[in-house]
Design a protein around this nucleic acid. Sequence first.
DNA 1: GCGTTAGATTAACGCTGTTAACCTAACGCC
DNA 2: GGCGTTAGGTTAACAGCGTTAATCTAACGC
Lengths: 217, 217
Amino acid sequence: MSTSVNAKPAGSAARRVRQKEETRDRILDAARDLFVANGVEATTMRAIAARIDYTPTAIYHHFRDKEALIEELCYLDFRALAAALVRIGEIADPLERIRKMGWAYAEFGFENRGQYQFMFMTQTSHIQVDDSRIQKNNPEQDAYGFLVQTVEEGLKKGLFRPEFQDEHQLAQIFWSGLHGLISLHIAKADDPWITWRDPRSTIRLSIDVMIRGTRRQ
Amino acid sequence: MSTSVNAKPAGSAARRVRQKEETRDRILDAARDLFVANGVEATTMRAIAARIDYTPTAIYHHFRDKEALIEELCYLDFRALAAALVRIGEIADPLERIRKMGWAYAEFGFENRGQYQFMFMTQTSHIQVDDSRIQKNNPEQDAYGFLVQTVEEGLKKGLFRPEFQDEHQLAQIFWSGLHGLISLHIAKADDPWITWRDPRSTIRLSIDVMIRGTRRQ
DNA sequence: GCGTTAGATTAACGCTGTTAACCTAACGCC
DNA sequence: GGCGTTAGGTTAACAGCGTTAATCTAACGC
């Protein structure tokens, strides 16, 4: 995954700016690699710096502190997730769209365990992506808003059983059903206590269960 | 929640043993309080020691290191969870038992957010409760085993749709449906991005969805 | 050519988990 | 009853952590 969102600026003396952005991106790439490999907590600023042959202090010229670095990666990953879901928006039937979204969401989680972990499995009460950076309800940027919209469409078409009235509550049921399996699989994958089945097969069944359990008749 | 599992030993010169156990329990109680209040990572050995007026080094006479201390609390909490579920075992109908177990499980999670977090939401690939300490499949000690047994009973009675054959896979669907909501609520409770609904109400609906989605006809 | 600027470095601070060395009170034993 | 042994506790210290103040230096605009 490329770290930079926009193209680099070109120009005569604006090379400085470009070089600074390149350094910034190298920091982000190194941080992502180490976060994914060893976890956020276990990754030190010194290790990130060493990987790109800088001193730890250099990072602080690009990011306020370690938390700001994590936050920036979160922001990029939330956009990447939304981008992975967005072409599914073309599917007309809301239920079928939910099915495909769920599948794509789970795939993102299993393929990007490290990112998934610090996007959804760590307490982020203060690490919050600035509202101004991700446009709420824009499907290209806000995956949760996209799901809520799809559920709302299904509600309007009367596809769900009458006890479901609230698009947020219903979206949260779908979301957490998938998140539960993905996150348990990430946290407890190596735990011999649990006899794990193939997670993708369980995800498929789980989506079926949730759609069958919520749709009208 | 009491930390000690067994009664203290009584006797003439075995007071030493009893006193050591009392200190050990005070360490565990202090650690639990701080873990729950501030999280595992943010809680320092020095803070735990200070809370009971010992030096940090004293803890190391009772626990190998911080990880062993966490592991001990995990062990106690897994037993506490299983104990909270065990009287539900009396309910005859497996589906109704699953419903009640789910409800009790979620209640445990919402009421013990700190414990829940380090029981199910943190990577425990090395922190593993010794197999010899919790008896697998004993409902009083192994909550997951209890769920699998209940699902298995339902499978034998033909209560589930034919595509569900595997008691582990089905148990994992039920478990992760609840875990998803509990863990998202713990990790993202303060995130203004998500419009949260009352979690207990969503849990009730979610259990209904999963039972309706899996039961025969 | 020169003052200014900004990315990078060196050195250090306070904090963390952990350990070696020691201290001391209570034990079993003669 | 005195004594070596034991074990829970302390003091002091180590290496490594995130972070920061002071400094160095190379390139910029004028």
